[in-house]
């Protein structure tokens, strides 16, 4: 699974960040971040379409606001999982953590992936929603 998420997050080298990506891969950190994204996208979008499911919260901007919230959650998840784990690992080895901006870059990638995943999930599951089946836009 870590390999799979590694492939996705590095996207054939496009989003590869020197050393930082290798550290994430070697320490299996793609897995919790990727799984959180995958599961939270499903759960939050299912909640939007089948629990929230409100006629006054079904316009495209409501939806965009909602997935942005899910994206922010995943941004924070990515940031704290990677930073906390790598901090512990580097401290255990007696080294100073050599990354700073990389955490933000990776979290931003995770944020964008969250938006994309939520969009995909939306179009897959929305058909059965009573009030949001044409959200974010009709076919």
């Amino acid at each position: 699974m870590n390999d799979f998420f590694g492939l996705i997050y590095e996207l054939g080298g496009l989003f590869y960040i020197d050393n930082f990506s290798e550290d994430l891969f070697d320490n299996n950190l793609y897995l919790p971040v990727g799984l959180t994204l995958f599961i939270s996208g499903l759960v939050f979008m299912a909640a939007y379409y089948y629990l929230v499911n409100h006629p006054r919260f079904n316009r495209w901007y409501h939806w965009l606001f909602y997935i942005a919230l899910v994206g922010i959650i995943n941004f924070l998840v990515a940031y704290f999982i990677t930073k906390n784990n790598l901090t512990i690992i580097y401290e255990n080895e007696g080294n100073t953590l050599p990354y700073y901006g990389q955490f933000y870059t990776f979290s931003l990638i995770n944020f964008i992936y969250t938006l994309l995943w939520c969009t995909v999930v939306s179009f897959i599951i929305r058909w059965g929603s009573r009030n949001c089946s044409t959200t974010p836009f009709p076919n």
């Binding site: 409100h54 006629p55 006054r56 009573r130 009030n131 089946s133």
Partner: peptide, 15 residues
């Protein structure tokens, strides 16, 4: 309740 007035009306129309 959770859905009221014309929101509830729309809920029934959508169903």
């Amino acid at each position: 309740g959770y859905k009221r007035n014309f929101a509830l009306f729309d809920d029934y129309l959508n169903a």
